[in-house]
Amino acid sequence: MSRGAAVLCLLLPLWGCAFARQDTNEPLDPAVVRSLVPGTTTAREVVERLGAPTEVVQLGRRSAWRYDAATTKSTVLFLGIVNFANQDTRSDRLWVFFDERDVLTHAGAWFGTHRTQYALPWEDVHEDADNAARDAERPGLVP
């Protein structure tokens, strides 16, 4: 047996791979977010549709509420001495802004949890075409 083959045999039991996924909060529903109408929707109605926010920020007499969710996908390739790891996190975010009468004035949303991918650190992910294909698959995102 050559020396290289011997080293290979010693390292072989150390090789392996692992995948992990972590979700924080439920992804936001784009249809529910679209139902929020500035100038009309009240804070009470927002709570009825989306539940309790993650964060409330006081802005003088105004306030802003944050709703969010995140998905993390991790990939690790164990090769004994050297390991390769990739961690990809994408989030859904919604900020709703209320005036002093608790009526919605502005809303801003971003939907990204469905774009999270398992990959190795040298792989290209999140190209425009890839993101567009994943957007099309998420219910309610592309009207």
Binding site: L14, I81, N83, A85, Q87, R90, G112
Partner: peptide
């Protein structure tokens, strides 16, 4: 060189040394 490699291999097998190439991405 082979002695160094063997030493590194022994340390790796004992769980004493490991190298990592990693990427972390968060949102766009």
């Amino acid at each position: 060189a082979p002695a160094t490699a063997a030493g590194a291999l022994a340390l790796a097998l004992a769980g004493c040394i490991s190298g990592e190439y990693a990427r972390a991405t968060f949102d766009e």
